[in-house]
Design a protein around this nucleic acid. Structure first.
Lengths: 351, 351
DNA sequence: CGCCCTTTGGCAACCGGTTGCCAAATCTGT
DNA sequence: ACAGATTTGGCAACCGGTTGCCAAAGGGCG
């Protein structure tokens, strides 16, 4: 026999193989329909290639056997797995919820399955996960990747790859335009009378962090606002909490944060320390995550269209896999969301 | 040729195939190491089967070619994909964050990849996703499934399957024990003087909802507390908001909710309507999700050990796949978390 | 030094599909 | 009724691994 769970060819040739536990194959279907396996294959996946009557007979046979195509067997000769990999830095970060849902719905719409892995903010783990996933997927979506350009380019050489929140020359990337939101936020803060603000930075390896920081540092001076950078901070609630001391020391009357988690952490720590937000300290978050609207006060923030980004990323990946050319311009603009964590600085009146 | 991207055997036999784009196979490795493909296969996956020196030579060759095993090719003859499927009712529900992370880390620890799909609370979509995933995974984890017993049993007959938040005879299931937390919550509410409470139910098809409801309806009378059921409600913020009117109409001074999302929705709607929580209405949530501690007041809730449940579920699934017998008792007990959304009812003093 | 037992590595079948090529069957037009 | 064009379906090779069986090589011991 030479093979483990095999069935002798005699058996297979005689019985219609009712259901010996193993799922039906195209060979079973072929036997029942009285055609050759290749005809079954074509009937089921090459519409029009086989005459209507034969195709009907085959479909009947397949249905009666509850035939299910084996994705692995199909993937082997074709190289296509109908699977997309998504890599995240941290699953428990609420920013990714909507993105994942958008990606998931777009994927099923295209008949793709999503496999997901997280890298816990570590470039090594991310690289390892990417390499591990690579042979099993048709394409990869890297969200807020912590990999460097070289590693990304190398990955992109092997399989279609789409970046979210990152731009690398020669690799398709979707990055929400932070400027509109930041501009509106600075206008708002400036209008309230703030003259000295701080930017609470995220991780140094975060590309988005640079982008946001640069936009703040470019826009603030134009409005006569001075700005200092405080960080790097872990992009978590604790990261925000730990930054309070330095925020107070800086004398800034308002802060823009790398993300909402930091903003919320900072807010809760401030309140625990008896600091009045927004009167003593204004806080502007980033992303508008789940939960940022039910803190007290609710946090003023800059919304990024994550669900749309997720959807666009898998659409793009699917197009890339199909070898289609795409114009690729998706509108991903940020939007200022005014809530309760910002107000005029106390000094304004006091001084 | 008969095959698309094929290489003629002449070419393959002569050149060491430097890197024509296609990744290296065991045949390439075999050629470079001067052994047969089967020896390569054994050297790489049957430790000890091949002599140390030959194995070393093979590993060298593999490394030099950057050989990567093709998971699909391996899966075909063995039937094992090293992939686990996780089905959720709703990815954007924060309850699942920790669960997913626990499941993810346990999966990678066992060398498994996680594929994930959501059913959007629809049994049909869930069934379809399960069937679609089934042939590509070694086992399935169904979290808060909306499927009926028959469908679950049928699935469990085809592949190892583990349930979370659901119990079906003959199928391994992990369900956190709601009683300790609910008992403590009722004691707390009773001690504060509440005599009339409401249970804000979740979806009717939710098995956990029944369990929680039953525990409340059993425990309340024992403490001289009357209880009414209000629902079903969508297990979302909006579901909670929509329920406020009926809560007020019921005259209950405190509510226990099916989950924290409903609790938070109810809380925000109450505050919008000028109702003082906790003085006019006490709220107890369920699960202790991300965000429930930074509402104002923070919500008193019953914590379920989700990360542990996720980890335990994949551990169990892996054991099941390996055919191991497991005692299976994992400690998953709920815990009452006292925060700010509960207080003595106003009537207590007023009446 | 020869015999027997253990290692070691190769052969070939097999997993379940896909597809280039070809021959038989069917259709067309006259 | 027949040559030629078109449909239809089968053959067989192939994707990249795994593994039962076996023969050759190596080792131990009397």
């Amino acid at each position: 026999m030479g093979y483990p769970g095999g069935v002798t060819s005699d058996d297979a040739a005689r019985t219609p193989a009712p259901d010996p536990g193993k799922p039906a194959t195209i060979y079973d279907v072929a036997r029942v329909a009285g055609v050759s396996p290749s005809t079954v294959s074509r009937a089921l996946s090459k519409p029009g290639r086989i005459s209507a009557t034969t195709e009907y007979r085959i479909r009947e046979a397949a249905a009666s056997l509850d035939y299910r195509l084996n994705p692995m067997a199909r993937a082997l000769p074709t190289g296509r797995t109908n699977t997309l990999g998504v890599l995240l830095s941290d699953i428990t970060n609420p920013v990714y919820f909507d993105l994942l849902r958008g990606a998931g719905s777009a994927a099923t719409a295209h008949g793709y399955t999503l496999v997901m892995a997280e890298s816990q903010e570590s470039p090594e783990q991310e690289q390892e996960a990417a390499v591990r996933l690579l042979p099993a997927v048709d394409g990869l979506v890297l969200v807020s990747t912590r990999l460097d350009d070289a590693a990304i380019t190398q990955l992109a050489d092997r399989k279609p790859l789409v970046l979210v929140n990152r731009q690398v020359p020669g690799v398709p990337g979707l990055v929400p335009d932070a400027r509109p939101g930041i501009t509106a936020a600075l206008d708002h803060l400036g209008g309230l009378g703030h003259r000295s603000i701080a930017y609470l930075a995220g991780p140094t390896i975060s590309w988005m962090n640079m982008l946001r920081r640069d936009a703040v540092f470019e826009g603030a001076p134009e409005r006569g606002i001075s700005v200092v950078e405080i960080g790097p901070n872990a992009p978590t609630l604790d990261g925000g909490r730990a930054a309070l001391r330095r925020v107070r020391a800086s004398g800034a009357t308002a802060v823009l944060t790398y993300n909402d988690l930091i903003a919320i952490g900072l807010l809760s720590e401030a309140q625990a320390g008896g600091i009045d937000v927004p009167r003593e300290l204004s806080i502007v978050g980033f992303d508008d995550i789940f939960g940022s609207d039910f803190t007290s006060p609710p946090v003023t923030t800059i919304r990024t269209p994550l669900a749309r980004a997720g959807r666009a990323a898998v659409n793009r990946a699917v197009a890339e896999i199909a070898g289609e050319d795409v114009d690729g311009s998706v509108d991903l603009t940020t939007e200022f969301v005014l809530r309760g964590s910002t107000a005029a600085p106390r000094d304004e009146r006091g001084a």
